[in-house]
Design a protein around this nucleic acid. Structure first.
Length: 495
RNA sequence: GGCCCCAUCGUCUAGUGGCCUAGGACGUCGGCCUCUCAAGCCGAAAACAGGGAUUCGAAUUCCCUUGGGGUCACCA
């Protein structure tokens, strides 16, 4: 039997990173078994529909490399793959359930339902439908008048859910609500649509988050009512924020798009998410896995049963690992959009600027946790800086006069040297430090602050090379002025 | 609150009765390297929620307690 799994999002916004983890489990399972991964849009709630959502969802999936074999855009033998285009089917199936004695029409008003629930809550009972229309004569409510169709849950006995990971879970039927299957607007609820579609589309494994577990007995009952064989249920744990609550926007980035914009690379996010709640086991200590390795090693049975906290710190580390593993050319390509987005370089990139960018890439590569970090790290290369204060320009354990002298000496050297690249600059500057009786750190720090006005910056000589001689000398000259002013003020104050 | 799920370092996890004085990774702390910051290398602190039971032997099996989470719509 061919494995067929699905991702069935409702188009209500950006896919959440926690949901995506579950999608990855589905995708991995499909690819590993040479099965099919199906995308189905569950747009049965007209009130929550967001116009662009389907596009946003497919963009996110594509970015992560999660391709689908059947879906709304690519089609397939089980279409249509959008539930709002299958309304007649659900209606027919709901009616069939009435005929089979497993469902009934109900015309209770929302107001009445709310009153009933309120009364139940007041008595400390769980709010449930009170069965008002359940035992009405079959023709008591006309199919033509506004009504819903409810599932007729047996009043006694238990319904057992077979879960691949958790085993058999028994639910008391008496505690299960008579779920609405078909709404008064003619749309199905999730419970009807998901069962009908999963069956009609020959889904073999329903891999979904734990939050669905409480409604699974309803689905099992619907399968029984139709005399259909239920697929294998696999409920996987939720992803939590670092406070132990369900992951949400409060915890920082939450949607796939947030991560992309911050400069997380898709391969790292994919790797990280797969390892969130799953590990290869058997003493395997590897953490960095290619997509192919993941497909090979993934095993549903090794999914952890406990909810997993989303560790941003570890993602940052892993993202850095992936960034460092890239070729300089590949990293350059990924960095350009971030420089452009920040307005540091134009689009398209002028040919002569590419040379500067190529100098910068190896300088920043091992310093980036996220691609976005390149902006703050290199903005001084592209934008003019504010000249540092005299105080900031002091070398460690050095007087203003000594600092100024060192800066002037560097100025002279940098204006004379024949070529202006890091390789020729560095030995000369080291020699200069020695000649001045300074430690390299003392001299280099003064120059770094002079040209970047940053205490933390990429390696000095590469930065200077990227900056070019003219800009470098101009900034050093301005720093000298700042130091001169600083010295004059000190003298004035002490006089 | 009812029902359901879950429980190894701060976090992600390895561990399926003896190999565990519990291993790895992130993070943290210390050191080395070093022009800053990183990266890299070395090292340290850090966990089987508690109580019973089964067993010659329990992180591993069972029960209870505690704790955490999820869910109770004409939302998915």
């Amino acid at each position: 039997m061919t494995v067929r799994v699905r991702f069935a999002p409702s188009p209500t916004g950006h896919p959440h990173i926690g949901n995506i983890r579950t999608v990855i489990f589905n995708w991995l399972y499909a690819r590993q078994n040479h099965g099919k991964f199906i995308l189905r849009i569950e747009d049965t709630d007209q009130t929550r529909y967001v116009p662009n959502a389907v596009q946003v969802i497919t963009d996110s999936l594509r970015w992560l490399g999660l391709d689908w074999d059947e879906g709304p855009d690519v089609g397939g033998p089980y279409g249509p793959y959008v539930q709002s285009q299958r309304l007649a089917l659900y209606k027919e199936k709901a009616e069939e359930l009435i005929e089979r004695g497993w469902a009934y029409r109900c015309n209770c008003t929302p107001e009445r339902l709310e009153r009933v629930r309120e009364a139940q809550r007041a008595r400390g009972l769980p709010p449930m439908y009170d069965g008002h229309c359940r035992e009405l004569a079959p023709d008591a409510i006309s199919p033509d008048e506004p009504h819903v169709i409810r599932l007729k849950i047996p009043r006694e006995g238990q319904t057992v859910v077979h879960d691949l990971l958790k085993g058999d879970i028994a639910f008391e039927n008496a505690l299960i609500d008579d779920q609405v299957l078909l709404k008064s607007d003619g749309y199905p609820t999730y419970h009807l649509a998901v069962v009908v579609d999963d069956h009609m589309m020959d889904i073999t494994h329903i891999i979904r988050a734990d939050e669905w577990l409480p409604s699974t007995p309803k689905h099992v009952l619907i399968y029984q009512a139709f005399e259909w064989e239920a697929p294998t249920f696999v409920h996987v744990p939720l992803v939590m924020g670092d406070d132990g609550k369900k992951l949400s926007k409060r915890h920082g980035a939450a949607s796939v798009d947030d991560f992309r914009k911050q400069g997380y690379v898709a391969e790292a996010v994919f790797n990280f998410l797969t390892l969130l709640g799953w590990a290869p086991g058997e003493g395997e200590e590897q953490e960095i896995f290619s997509r192919e390795e993941l497909i090979e090693h993934f095993d549903l049975h090794h999914i952890n049963l406990a909810p997993a906290v989303f560790a941003y710190d570890k993602l940052d580390w892993m993202n850095g690992v992936y960034i460092r593993a890239m070729s300089e050319e590949a990293l350059l390509e990924r960095l350009i959009p971030f420089w452009q987005e920040a307005g540091l370089i134009p689009a398209p990139v002028p040919a002569e600027m590419m040379e500067t960018l190529r100098i910068l890439v190896p300088l920043v590569q091992e310093r980036l946790k996220r691609l976005q970090d390149v902006v703050e790290l290199t903005d001084f290369i592209f934008n003019d800086i504010e000249t540092a204060s005299g105080e900031a320009l002091l070398g460690k354990n050095m007087t203003p006069e000594q600092s100024l002298e060192a800066l002037k000496a560097a100025h002279t050297l940098l204006s004379k040297t024949l070529s202006f690249d890091a390789e020729t600059l560095e030995p000369q500057m080291r020699q200069l430090a020695e000649d001045l009786g300074l430690k390299t750190g003392q001299l280099f720090t003064i120059i770094r602050v002079a040209v970047s006005n940053k205490k933390v910056a990429p390696p000095l000589f590469g930065s200077i090379e990227a900056l070019g001689r003219q800009t470098t000398l101009k900034r050093i000259a301005r720093a000298e002025e700042a130091l001169v002013h600083y010295i004059e003020q000190k003298h004035a104050a002490s006089a």
